[in-house]
Design a protein around this nucleic acid. Sequence first.
DNA 1: CGTAATGTTGAGATCAGTCAATCATGGTGG
DNA 2: CCACCATGATTGACTGATCTCAACATTACG
Lengths: 243, 243
Amino acid sequence: MKAKAIKSQHDLKIRAVGSLPPAPGQRRAVLPLSGAERAELSRLAEIVEYRTPGSQILGEGEPGRFLFLLADGLVRTHVTLNDGERQILAFYWPGDLFGLAEEGTYVATAEAVTPATVYRFPYHDLQQFLTTNPSLQYGFLVKAMHEWRSAQRQLIVMGRFDVAKRLAIFLLDCSAHEQFFSGEDGLLTLPMTRYDIADYLGTSAESVTRALARLEDEGLLKRLSARQLRLDREKLRAYADFT
Amino acid sequence: MKAKAIKSQHDLKIRAVGSLPPAPGQRRAVLPLSGAERAELSRLAEIVEYRTPGSQILGEGEPGRFLFLLADGLVRTHVTLNDGERQILAFYWPGDLFGLAEEGTYVATAEAVTPATVYRFPYHDLQQFLTTNPSLQYGFLVKAMHEWRSAQRQLIVMGRFDVAKRLAIFLLDCSAHEQFFSGEDGLLTLPMTRYDIADYLGTSAESVTRALARLEDEGLLKRLSARQLRLDREKLRAYADFT
DNA sequence: CGTAATGTTGAGATCAGTCAATCATGGTGG
DNA sequence: CCACCATGATTGACTGATCTCAACATTACG
């Protein structure tokens, strides 16, 4: 629960793929920010570090005072339904934005899965700031559209795939982040619990375990321990059959 | 399939609820656009009318040349999976944006459900245009974040609710649009088929029918005909138990 | 070293998907 | 005007994935 503002050495980056075709040879996973823009943004941002896994960063229903940019670590957002069920809306990796508000109120709770460092931008200043930094604002627009696509992609997964496929796709998504995945040996170190995965994929922790067992039976991965998986990404991709 | 560029009398409006708290007494469902902004946007936009229900407006995988703003009618976007299944990602109502591209390629197909009129903005011009119209660009950012929230909301529905609840929520969503719903008598005229609803809710047409029957049994609505429903919105809201 | 949290496995119940048949509707051409 | 047909909608029977409950195993941590 302890948060502490610190000086940071993190690179301020926004992870996004844009709408327009990239220039030849260029495939950007990160928005290009000029040094000046980076400096401007840094001046507006406060840096906060959440050291304890599980720390709440912001709560659903609270006044939405900041938009957050994740610098380091892993963050999840969720809503709690009236029957007590939890739906995780997204996991956020470094370079992702979170902290969506609707009419001044956060629509989901955000928590650190691992220790996490964030930039936070006061919503109040953001409008004016972006309006006076159009090319930077365009970057935010690209990012918002990127996140919109991510959510739609997850809708496809939830709407049409069984638990095993959803899990396969999720593991592949995780393996895109070097922080937790080593490309050479295919080793994925899961930072989240079975319950987290289940609440993200719209299923139960038991079903996640069973789906893992099934993928292992079919030779798509090997469970070294509960949180350590050796993936065969090619086979997983063929199995998932989904971009 | 026939599209025709026409002069239009439609109001150019962008439907969105923003992040910041609204000014007192104000609850905007539509972004405030100045007359000048409206004129600027109109100058950039081409107006196209799709008269035949089912007309394709843009296709998944095609070069993404335009961003679309729906002026009138109803539009659906979907992706087709490798096994032939269809997942509808969203229905778009007047004032909504669609036509998301990723690296220059549309990620979903868009089709007119009813006759529809759209503004289309060349992506190529949009970046420069928005960069030189910062306050308008802010409107687009707000809208993109609005759509992002909509997609996340649907994720909750898909992840945690059974078919009957999903349907109840869907009907309530439809009833927010006066075009198809009459508030006084609670009459909803569905513009889409059972298959459309099923592919949106991640279920089958048969299950949609059964869920409708169940909601009718429980007195939450009455089926006047397949496409004509008399809703008891209060009961539906209580049943759905979800904002 | 003990306790709580996390993960795994099993058995039974249930929701919803599939297949198939039937009914309804609206548009078309004779 | 009406018969016909294609599409959409409904209903029934069956099946299967997965949810739930329960027991047990493992891990992490104080």
